[in-house]
Lab assay of single mutants.
Amino acid sequence: AVTGSQTALLLRAFEKDRFPGIAAREELARETGLPESRIQIWFQNRR
């Protein structure tokens, strides 16, 4: 499950760019500790 702090970080990124590229998703994966594929799905679901 995604924690509150991970969600906050993802929401901030989403406000800046609703369609992040692979580099941005990989950076978010490093920052959150989540797999990049999970980040991609999160953005798809959020849109």
Rank of each mutant, 00 (worst) to 15 (best):
A1W: 12
A8H: 08
T7N: 13
E27I: 09
T32S: 05
P35N: 09
R30V: 08
I22T: 08
Q6C: 12
R25C: 12
L10W: 00
E36P: 11
P35C: 14
S37Y: 12
A23D: 12
I39L: 04
A13P: 01
E15I: 10
G21T: 09
A23V: 09
R12N: 10
T3I: 06
A24L: 06
R18C: 14
G4L: 14
R46Y: 12
T3R: 05
V2I: 14
R30A: 08
Q6H: 06
I22Q: 10
E15R: 07
A24R: 09
W42Y: 01
L9C: 04
F43Y: 04
T7V: 12
E15M: 13
A24Q: 13
T32M: 05
D17W: 08
T7C: 14
R18A: 12
N45S: 08
T32L: 11
S5Y: 14
A29H: 03
A1N: 13
Q40N: 13
A1G: 12
A24M: 12
I39N: 01
T7R: 10
T3F: 07
K16E: 09
P35A: 10
A8K: 13
A1M: 14
D17A: 05
E15G: 07
S5K: 13
P35M: 06
R18S: 10
N45H: 09
E27W: 10
A23Y: 08
G33P: 00
I22Y: 12
T3C: 08
L11H: 06
E36F: 06
G33H: 04
L28G: 00
P20E: 01
Q44E: 15
S37K: 09
V2M: 15
R12W: 08
N45R: 08
F14A: 00
G33V: 02
Q40I: 12
A23Q: 09
K16V: 06
T7W: 14
A29C: 07
D17G: 05
P35Y: 01
G4N: 14
E36H: 07
K16W: 06
R38E: 14
E27Q: 11
E26S: 07
N45Y: 10
G33N: 06
E31S: 08
I22F: 12
A24I: 11
R12I: 12
E27F: 07
A13W: 09
E27S: 06
E26H: 11
Q40G: 07
E31C: 07
Q40F: 12
A13E: 04
R25Y: 12
S37I: 13
E15N: 11
E31Q: 15
R38V: 15
L9M: 11
R25T: 09
R46T: 07
E15W: 09
R12T: 06
T7G: 10
A29G: 06
S37W: 15
G33Q: 04
S5G: 07
E15D: 15
E31H: 08
I39D: 02
I39W: 01
T32D: 03
V2F: 13
W42A: 01
A13M: 08
A1P: 13
A8W: 08
Q40H: 07
L34W: 12
R18F: 05
T7A: 10
I39P: 15
Q44I: 12
R30Q: 10
L34A: 01
I41P: 01
E15K: 12
I22H: 11
T32H: 00
R25Q: 06
R12G: 05
R30W: 08
L10M: 04
K16C: 03
A1R: 11
P35T: 14
L34E: 01
G4P: 15
F43S: 00
L9N: 03
L28Q: 00
A23R: 08
P35F: 03
E27H: 11
R46F: 09
R25V: 15
R47S: 05
D17S: 07
L10T: 00
R18Y: 04
G21R: 04
F43H: 01
G4T: 11
K16S: 08
Q44N: 09
E31I: 15
V2R: 04
A8S: 10
I41Y: 09
T3Y: 04
N45E: 14
E36V: 06
L34F: 04
R18D: 05
I41M: 14
A23T: 10
I22E: 11
A1Q: 14
Q40L: 13
R38T: 15
L28S: 01
F14C: 03
A1F: 14
L11K: 07
D17P: 00
R46H: 08
A29D: 00
P20K: 03
D17H: 07
A23P: 04
G4A: 15
R30I: 07
L11F: 05
R18I: 03
L10I: 01
